[in-house]
Amino acid sequence: MALVPDLNPAPLPADAVEVSRVQEAWGIKGWVRLHPYSADPEALFHARQWYLAPPEGRYARGFDAFTGTVSVAVAEIKFHGEGVVAQFDAISDRNAAESLKGARIYISRADFPATTDPDEFYWVDLMGLAVVNRQGVDLGVVRDLMPTGPHSVLVLEYQADGKPQERLIPFVSAYVDEVDKVARRITVDWQPDY
């Protein structure tokens, strides 16, 4: 039997991005501790409507709060210590909050705050972009980004001799000339044999 009352079944928006998961209940008034996937979870703080999906993997065992995706309104979210905690309008006690452990949190990409710096990008916006060098040579498609401390690295996937290969390019202005989200292309100062 589900312990969570009045959650609205809702499909994920077409532009949904998984941004966090519920770690555990926090306190006695229905708050939950979150595990944000970003070091700077401003998108979580900006969006007021979240979508919860059942957990996968080890968190899925024993999960019975809901079976499909549900929409929840965020009543409050704040930093607590080095973590983030949140409360939903529909959750008012610890038992209900405990039943959400492991739930995946999605928000609509349209609810992300706008970037103010033209050289600042959300990783999700770079995924799937084609990467070409200044000479127009196709270097691959962005499959992932890897944090390395001072900067991120584009992880490209490309084909060579009919086999998938991986290419790494530092995502810094010394190598990245332009990111054109409309054309879905990144132009870099990089050669295929680097």
Rank of each mutant, 00 (worst) to 15 (best):
V17E: 03
A75F: 11
D177P: 01
S71L: 15
S173C: 00
R33A: 13
E24H: 04
S108V: 08
A53G: 04
P13W: 02
A10K: 08
D161V: 05
R104C: 01
L52T: 09
A39R: 15
D93G: 03
H46I: 00
A53H: 01
A65M: 09
A73R: 14
A97D: 10
T116V: 02
P13F: 02
S173K: 14
E82F: 09
E24M: 10
F79Y: 12
M127T: 13
S92I: 04
V32Y: 04
T148D: 00
P13V: 12
A110V: 09
G83Y: 02
V172D: 03
E56W: 02
A73P: 00
F121A: 05
S99G: 06
G81D: 06
N133Q: 08
Q165C: 11
Q135K: 15
P164L: 12
P192V: 09
I186D: 02
D161A: 14
L126Y: 05
G149K: 11
W31T: 06
K78I: 01
R58D: 08
D119K: 14
A110L: 02
E18W: 07
V74E: 00
L3I: 01
L168S: 14
E178L: 15
V84R: 13
R21Y: 08
F63N: 01
L3V: 01
D15I: 08
P150K: 12
R167G: 03
E18A: 06
A110W: 01
A73S: 13
D144N: 15
P147W: 05
F112Y: 12
V137E: 15
L12Y: 02
R61Q: 09
P150N: 14
G149Y: 09
G83P: 00
A14M: 01
